[in-house]
Design a protein around this nucleic acid. Structure first.
Lengths: 114, 114
DNA sequence: CTAGCTATCTTGCAATGCAAGATAGTTGGG
DNA sequence: CCCAACTATCTTGCATTGCAAGATAGCTAG
């Protein structure tokens, strides 16, 4: 349903989680799932993109409970990008909010502006 | 740049503008352009979608300064949808905010999880 | 008649989220 | 031993949507 809303924000969300601590794709999904919906089919292509942009680096860690985990770590460029995305996101939310705020529509008697 | 962020919000923005007063596509673009970026290639397919969903109805009005304008008016279903979208948007913004807010990375002392 | 503004619409492309499924290692039950 | 279930990776193909570019058309001014 809200699929479209997520477009462009998931990168930022993943970077934000990685800003706290390194993680691997499978764990990222379960971490983010505590707050928002995200599925595995989404995360792997996404992580590849982040890596292509050099916003994350990777290293393998063996696991005793399954296959090796590919950990992702935020790079310096990734930190800068995260801050940029945050700014853009807040700006965008504010823009949308300002469009929405003109919808009170409750009462048009005292309206100003076109 | 922020193209992806707009996905799914433009419908809502258009409905919000129409909640104030009827308008036509060309005018909607210029109205919304005061606040956010949107282009004509976006608006026409979008308006068709809104119409297919029966969230707007249309009527033609001749213009002395060019071709006839196709005005769009919010339907009752459209008003309900707008409120729904608003709720979902606010919920989503809050979710993203809560993921972002954990990025201070300040302190991991109280962490649990595997 | 050409240029430019209003106004409509279409085509084709890029980006991205996701369902579905393939592949593997590990563990526990029958 | 074998099978199910959980961890963990990744790929394929599809749907949605925003946008650049361009086509069409009415009107006005030079």
């Amino acid at each position: 349903m809200k699929t479209q809303l997520k477009k462009g924000t998931l990168d930022m969300c993943v970077l934000a989680v990685l800003a706290q601590s390194d993680s691997y794709a499978y764990e990222l999904v379960s971490t983010l799932s505590r707050t928002m919906e995200i599925s595995e089919g989404t995360i792997y292509p996404l992580m590849r993109r982040l890596q292509n942009e050099s916003w994350v680096s990777t290293y393998l860690v063996e696991s005793a409970s399954g296959p090796s985990r590919k950990y992702y770590a935020l790079t310096e460029a990734g930190k800068r990008e995260l801050e940029l995305m945050r700014r853009e996101w807040q700006e965008f939310v504010s823009e949308v909010g300002s469009v929405l705020s003109r919808l009170p529509a409750a009462d048009k008697s005292g309206e100003q502006q076109a």
